[in-house]
Design a protein around this nucleic acid. Structure first.
Lengths: 295, 295
DNA sequence: AGGGCTTGTGCAAAAAAGGCACGCTTTGAT
DNA sequence: ATCAAAGCGTGCCTTTTTTGCACAAGCCCT
């Protein structure tokens, strides 16, 4: 781009002076002495090589060039001021967020403290559903949903694409195990996917046979079962993070894979509401921070 | 208005940094060290109370708030830069100006030196006509015309509304005269107006009778006749100014009146051409300077 | 393991901005 | 007519801001 702008403080001084048609009043607005404004304007005129003000018997008046210049500067400064005010106001409003139950519990809620701290006046309503139906059905502004890898969620911003690793309670797996040994333990399976088959393939082991001890259930329940020490679970490392840190789970292997990713869906036209925009921005920042710091 | 803007130099630093997603490259663009940019951005974040950049393993990335802020700042700075470039370029182009003959000779041409000096690359074409027909008929971009006092030229910018005073060659009037004595001299009259009658009324004298020595002619010729010492003329003091300064004319009385004013007419849509805008601006500045300094 | 690239920070120097006091001119009021 | 007030320009000095440099730390790639 390589713009070369005149001194910005001088521009601001000129803008105020032009608006007031008076150096003194401009100085007043800017909270400086009239001499400061006078210097700024003179400096600007020298630099631009054009006269911006004309002397009046008493006071000053803009030249035509000054008028033109001012006409461009004032809206620009206005816009900058307006954008800057964005940060002053304490945001308020309501946001309704619908997240998948496991993701809500283990990913979203642990981070919400930061949001509450930053924006205590925003009222957050949390719902937990997994169905991939229209958000509007749940009357939610935003929805956090899982998508299998593929091109069909291109438009929805990414929240988490952390890979799946095997996790288990330390009571069940006190120390790291080889993949073969791991596959002999009770395997907690998702109700609808066979993630263990894929994992076994990755490790080069034979795909595990179904056993009486292998339970199939919803992700949320499978996770609780793993915490209770009933078996080994394939879970997103971002989701397991908290329980690993607390010593309630251990990662049983370095081998993992990406089955899909969590994305953020927005209800129609809802981003016009500032509280929703705020939460959305915060969420994406959280996600981006997470992905840039780890990995 | 009383805006309160963040430090503008910090804004510029942030804008460049955001655009490049890199403090170093921004510093490069701004011609400063990276530490200056770093400080500016941090200062801005502190002042706004919001995070604008997020640390990346290597480098930085905008937060969502940063993205939003940048989206407002960049166009503003662009606009400021664009407006500022106005002053760099040496203007070129052609302008065709049509002025009333006397006004052209005695008012416009003496000031044109300033225009030539400032904008040597603008080609100026000068025409002299008085008829108040469509400018387009003369293929002129701008026209300088006289209007009698009245509301019918409201839209056209004022060039000169200097009042009329009696002027004569010093050979004819070596020293100030009383109005009665003045009215005894040969009176040069405009072809179509009887300005002397009005002047006499102002002074309280009896209106002058027409005499064999009173000539009626176009303003331009009447003026030349006055210069030649053939009689007394009622003329705008701005027009006579040059010849008074040169000693070729003297103002015979302090009593004067405003009969009308000169205004600037623009051909349709012609202000889009930069050379025309330039001349127009220059002309209006000349006029404004003249009126603010005298009087 | 090491060089290259990027950002953060302490310290001192440089530059910009600012204030004050004064001069000048015009305006308006006593 | 004189005098005060309002405006702006300018020289001089102080204060504040900005900057550069040097160094440290972290990460990436070879």
């Amino acid at each position: 781009m390589a713009r070369s702008l005149p001194p910005l403080n001088a521009l601001r001084a000129f803008e105020a002076a032009g608006r007031h048609q008076s150096f003194s009043r401009a100085a007043d607005e800017l909270g400086v002495s009239h001499s400061a404004v006078s210097r700024h304007v003179r400096g600007l005129e020298d630099r631009l090589g054009a006269q911006l003000f004309r002397d009046l018997p008493r006071g000053v008046a803009l030249t035509q060039a000054g008028v033109r210049y001012l006409a461009a500067l004032t809206p620009s400064f206005d816009r900058i001021a307006e954008a800057s005010e964005m940060f002053d106001q304490r945001p308020t409003g309501q946001v309704t967020v619908d997240a998948e139950p496991l993701f809500a519990t283990k990913w979203l809620i642990p981070r919400l403290g930061d949001f509450y701290a930053r924006f205590p006046d925003v009222e957050l309503r949390l719902q937990a559903n997994s169905a991939r139906v229209d958000i509007d059905r749940y009357e939610a502004d935003l929805a956090l949903r899982f998508f299998h890898a593929g091109p069909d969620h291109q438009t929805a911003p990414l929240l988490s694409d952390a890979p799946l690793y095997p996790f288990a309670a330390p009571t069940l797996v006190p120390e790291p195990l080889a993949p073969e040994a791991l596959l002999q333990l009770p395997l907690l399976r998702d109700r609808r996917e066979d993630t263990w088959r894929r994992w076994a393939t990755l490790t080069g082991c034979a795909p595990p046979k179904g056993a009486a001890s292998d339970w199939r259930m919803r992700a949320r329940l499978a996770y609780e079962s793993a915490l209770a020490g009933y078996g080994v679970l394939l879970a997103s490392c971002e989701i397991a993070e908290g329980d690993v840190a607390a010593g309630r789970l251990v990662q049983c292997s370095d081998i993992g894979f990406r089955m899909g990713s969590y994305h953020l869906l927005s209800a129609e036209g809802v981003t016009r509401r500032s509280a929703v925009r705020l939460f959305r921005d915060w969420l994406l920042d959280q996600s981006a921070s997470l992905r840039s710091s780890s990995k």
